[in-house]
Simulated scan of single mutants.
Amino acid sequence: MRDFAIVASNKFKVSSTKINGIKINNYYYAGKSAKIYNQLAKQTAVDSIKLFTKKYGPYPYSELDLTESPFSSDTGGMEYSGLVMIAQDTFARKKAASKEDYDSVIENVSHEVAHQWFFNTVGNDEYTEPWLDEGMAEFSEDIIFDLSPINKIPKKYDKTDTAYNGGKSFYSLLRYLMGEKKFDQAMRDYYQTYYLKQATVKDFIAIIKKHDNSKAVNDLIKRYISPKYLQ
């Protein structure tokens, strides 16, 4: 376990289910749309675990807790080992949730659950190499969970978004160049090799080149990654 966190409230309702022998507990607050929020968050967690297990490998714990938590408007959630905190917007207290509210819950839950694989199982330095986990969580949310496939690289990034959007673009292009089958094999290899260990960019690239050392893949690596991270 890389971190320790506690979320506590005497106002929580809890709803539980199981998938692949894993107990999922969703802690949420009462409200006019609370029932819908609970069903949506819990089902997204179930679908995420099924998809990411198939693509990357098994979830390492016997339980996963989801909790509504207060965050600033620009934060969708936060990840810890066996715990994902989801932004406490006003979904559950609205008379009728909008499409944006539904999308936000799906995006936030799938993204934070993806972190159970990348950062909480395969760790990395969040300060110097944050795209290894944030880019992969963003990629898993959008591409693996199939929310918004990427067709081109955005030309400009806000510095705070580089780890998310830049990382997602790199993974998306890498998957395109390698092909889905070879990319999936490499990701499972990476996950299994560094299961409950710490990985670096150099470690990740070594796994990728083991599965595809083509000129196209190497050109992409040179385009995106500073040589200092590969030495």
Rank of each mutant, 00 (worst) to 15 (best):
R2L: 15
A5R: 15
A5K: 15
I6S: 00
S9L: 00
S9V: 04
N10W: 11
N10V: 09
V14S: 02
S15Q: 13
K18R: 09
I19W: 07
I22Y: 09
I24C: 02
N25F: 07
Y27V: 03
A30L: 13
G31W: 10
G31C: 08
N38M: 11
Q39R: 14
A41D: 01
A41I: 07
K42S: 08
A45W: 11
F52W: 07
P58C: 00
Y59A: 02
P60S: 05
S62C: 06
S62T: 11
S72D: 04
S73T: 14
S73P: 04
G77P: 04
M78K: 12
M78S: 05
E79A: 11
Y80R: 07
S81L: 08
S81Y: 11
G82Q: 00
K95T: 09
K99A: 06
E100L: 09
E100G: 03
D101V: 08
V105W: 07
E107F: 14
E107I: 11
S110Y: 04
V113S: 02
A114D: 05
Q116Y: 06
E126V: 13
E129K: 11
D133H: 15
E134P: 09
E134C: 07
M136F: 15
S148F: 11
I153V: 14
P154Q: 12
T160C: 05
D161K: 15
T162G: 01
K168F: 01
K168A: 03
K168W: 07
Y171W: 15
Y171A: 03
K182E: 05
D184A: 13
M187I: 14
M187N: 08
Y191S: 05
Y191H: 09
Y194T: 06
Y194D: 00
Q198A: 08
A199Y: 04
V201H: 03
F204A: 07
I205C: 02
K209R: 13
K210F: 07
N213F: 14
S214C: 12
A216H: 11
D219E: 12
S226K: 15
K228D: 02
K228W: 11
Y229C: 01
